[in-house]
Amino acid sequence: MTLEEDYYRDMLRIRRFEETVLDEFKRGVFSGTTHTSIGQEANAVGVIRQLLPDDIILTNHRCHGHFLAYGGDMRALFAELMGRQTGICGGRGGSQHIHYKNLYSNGVQGGIVPIAVGMALAEKQKKSEAAVVVFIGDGTLGEGVIYEAFNMASLWSAPLLIVVENNHIAQTTPTEYALAGDIRMRFQAFGIPALELDTSSVMEIAGNTFQLMREVHEDYSPRALILNTQRFGPHSKGDDTRSEEVVALLKEQHDPLAIMERQLSSASVSSIRSEVEQEVKAAFETALADPVARMEGRA
């Protein structure tokens, strides 16, 4: 399998996992809430596949793609969302609160950024050479604590890559209603070199992240990567206020899967598709049959 095919498969796994979640929500298999990253798969795969084995990932409410790109088990993620004992966190966390190896997520905006700084400083202190990547969205740029974190990351030279997935919409609020000034300048103000990419090409994101991570590792200092991206699905489940035409146009122009499919042979695309279909189906059905999580402690 070529690297292109490999990345395509990883993105397709995320896409099909999340499409399955949204479909099955309607049938009542899942409860509570979820946040999908359909359209943003190139960010997860392009960035996370460049990490070294000891590197650390901090992620947010929209974390399924990051978990799967990191090598997390699809059945355990399904099971976590279904509230099964076999879930990543035994059903305690659900869709947006997971911990697996060196990946940590939490559902409140902003707070994971200083935590990422602290982790990077701890690894530096331990001389482990691990670096940290933290994923935030454009909406989180409204949270004050991240600027405290940027300041400390730069001040103390934390080996940290801050990835802003700017999908141009925070829940239902377009970025232009919520954000003043320029995203890159925010980082520059703290002395953090920032690169901005306008692409849904996983290969382009991968190449640039590889270079940035090398700088983070070699210079022991923070970098920022701003990924201008598009979300095709709702913020959560049924809360998309954009018209179908608008979303269809975004998909036509920015679909990371379509971009990749144009570069691959149709035989290889169809073989990867059927492989992923089988994996998703098997993972879903296994998780569905797993035992439901039980609460202990009430006398």
């Binding site: 200083p114 935590i115 331990k126």
Partner: peptide, 24 residues
């Protein structure tokens, strides 16, 4: 480590240090 006046950020930074094996 002397710090800036950033209580919220510092609580997060020390939490991150603690999660990765230090005792802040």
């Amino acid at each position: 480590i002397p710090t800036p006046i950033s209580e919220a950020g510092l609580a997060g930074v020390t939490a991150g240090m603690a999660l990765r094996g230090l005792r802040p």
